[in-house]
Amino acid sequence: MVEYQLLRAHSLDELLEILDQRENVQLLAGGTDLMVDLHHQDQKFDKIDYLLDITAVDELKGIQLGDKKGEIGALTTHAELVSNPEIKEKLPFIAAAASSIGSTQIRNRATIGGNLANAAACADSFSPLIALGAEVVLRSKGGARRVLLEDFVEWPYQTIIKPDEVLEKIVFAMPQGEYYSSYQKIGRRKALSISRISLTLLAEVENGRVKKAQVASGAATPFPVPFRKVNDYLNGKSFAEIDPIEAGNIAADEMVGITGERWSTPYKRPALGKLVERAVEDLLEEAGYNG
């Protein structure tokens, strides 16, 4: 039988104090993953003495996008990401990923920090943020550290967060100059869909040439990774030199290099290749290249 003491933090200081003083504390934010585990009386609760609700901690909320830097508070809900005008305008791939998550009811509760900290292989928030080169700020009573998001997950459902730390916010450099992005996702249905494969392409371009491309996957690999070989293929190329099909093949090979041949490979290899191909086509089209 599941037993825990429920605590509520009302400020970041109070939250960090509780994490410092007590052991076996599980944080609770939007609850859209954890409440499912609770309903199933999941054995993860065997190791939990305290469930600490952090939804009232205002310091973990809010979106700030400057010219050079941006940050998103861990308790920002997916609904807020979808409706925020600045996100829509400057980082539309984040809004696209957020809008593909769950349903209206789920997006109203589920938070971006919760999505990252839960670290499901299919979590939709990783690929846009890894493409941005984002870092997470992990804060404890003793101070804070910044970790590249691509180094944050060790294995599905396992992150490098220490027991006395909270994921405070996500920080990143804003893309500069002329840039284009594409978010792609395959699920088995439209709403309430678990990603089979998702993907973000973000590219800064200059004078008809890709200056800096960042392609990152979700769900295609056990934990989210940047596709460096595709980045290398795209970087420095003029639009005329880019073959979207080749970019797709490179990504597919890179994925299989990580996962090995699995039962799902005959499906995932062409599917991922096609998603990368579509993303690159999106980029060329948006950039006005009609090769």
Binding site: L28, G30, G31, T32, M35, H39, Q105, R109, L192
Partner: peptide, 23 residues
């Protein structure tokens, strides 16, 4: 009971929420 069906939807502070997913 796991946020898939929406039968338990109520409005909390102006937002539709699955009441099975909230303590």
């Amino acid at each position: 009971s796991v946020g898939e069906c929406g039968a338990c939807t109520v409005i909390v502070d102006d937002q539709a929420v699955n009441s099975c997913m909230v303590l």
